[in-house]
Simulated assay, not measured.
Amino acid sequence: MIRPGFLSEAERQALVGVARNGLEEHRVARRANAIVLLNDGWSCEAVGSALLMDDDTIREWFKVYERAGLEGLSGFDHEGSSCRLTAEQQAALQAWITATLPCNTNRIGAWLKETYDLTYSSSGLIALLHRLEFDYRKPEVIPRKLDEARQKAFIESYEKLLNRLEDDEAVVFVDAVHPTHQARPAGCWAPKGTAIALEQTSGRQRLNVHGALNLETGQTQMLEVATVNAMSLIALLIAIEAAYLGKRWIHIFLDNAPYHHAALVRDWLKKSGRRIVLHFIPPYCPHLDPIERCWGVMHENTTHNRCYGSFAEFKTAVMTFLTRTVPAKWDQFRDRITDNFRVISPKDFRVMT
């Protein structure tokens, strides 16, 4: 709480003169106005609201005025544009942030207060961090066991297959997804000042889908199954063969789930008349499986910010999107669900531990 009446009459008149001076820089006039209002009994919150500033900034202006008077209000050194830290202190701060990767400005402000007894407002800290060339970013999630050589070999073999593919051959990606009957909150644009809420369902039922996607045409085969296992894979392979009657060979790419390698599946593939060739994506490489991106697009269009009153409604929305919307509107999705593969190396990242 800042007690009113802390200014002498001369000090108040000087500040009022600055605030009313049309030739004075606007930033200085605004700060002088804030100090006068604090002296007259306004709270930091009220002054901040009137000047369209946050209350922490108003408190910081008051501290600057206490320390350096009107000259301090004209210096702009407390918000990070002209840094109060020495070159050595800036280097220490940079080294500390680089080493610790703090998640919020509160922790950085606490470190500055403890280390150098300096107090920054939230906006001042953000300005300081930008000045020191720091950005706020979320880390990418990468698999723990990445084998660069295997990724490169897979991409080369995949491209080689595409280059020699005949008209009577097709390439299909296969995977399973298990969406749960729950709404997924996601960021959205909304009118300013409007509180946004999403009704949550109480259901925990899960939909099991074993599906296939052709990146060239957008054609899908999506089976709702009780359990994803070797039997559901065989049922899906039968559906794929039926959908590609004119193809001599169907090249199917899939991950290394145990049921994809099951003896039951291998025995089925050995039967006479089978036209399917399985290709396995390297372990721990979901980025080399385009159908994984299809699941992400599905969630964006069916579960993000959407609430379904019943599991039946939820299931209909998901299956309709996968079986009808994706093939019918493939031109809208093909740029996001692609085989634009790349090798991911942990060496390209600073991996947080």
Rank of each mutant, 00 (worst) to 15 (best):
L322E: 05
W42C: 02
S157Y: 03
S123T: 12
V18A: 04
I108L: 01
P102T: 10
G69T: 05
V326P: 05
T227R: 15
G69E: 05
W61C: 01
W330D: 02
F280R: 06
L85G: 04
L165I: 10
L93C: 05
Y116V: 00
R306G: 00
P185G: 06
I234W: 12
E313H: 13
T201L: 09
E25D: 09
H251T: 07
V177N: 09
L85F: 09
A46T: 08
D147R: 11
Q89Y: 05
V16G: 00
S310Q: 01
A127S: 13
E156V: 06
K270P: 00
P290R: 13
S232D: 13
T303H: 10
F280M: 02
F6Y: 14
L233Y: 03
S74K: 15
N305I: 12
I142P: 11
C83V: 11
P191N: 03
R204E: 07
P102Q: 07
R27A: 11
R184T: 13
E88I: 03
P139G: 10
P290Y: 05
V36D: 05
C44H: 06
P327M: 04
A262G: 03
I108Y: 01
T323V: 00
K192Y: 13
H261Q: 13
P179D: 07
A95Q: 10
A197Q: 09
R274E: 03
R206L: 10
R206F: 01
A91W: 01
R204V: 02
F280G: 01
I35Y: 10
I155S: 07
T217M: 04
D331T: 13
S157M: 08
I126Q: 12
Q89K: 03
D56S: 14
T316I: 00
E313Y: 06
R336I: 00
A46L: 07
D339I: 08
K347E: 05
A110S: 06
G273N: 11
M231R: 15
L38S: 11
E241H: 02
H299L: 11
Y308D: 11
R12E: 12
K329A: 07
F321A: 05
I281V: 15
C103K: 14
E60V: 08
Q219I: 02
R184K: 15
A32F: 13
T98F: 04
L237N: 02
A10W: 03
T325Q: 06
H299R: 15
Q200P: 09
A153P: 09
P143D: 12
H261I: 00
M1Q: 02
S49E: 09
E159W: 08
E166D: 09
V16E: 15
R107E: 12
D289E: 11
C307T: 15
H287D: 11
G246W: 07
E24W: 06
E133C: 10
P283A: 08
A92T: 01
T220I: 13
P282L: 10
L237W: 08
R350I: 04
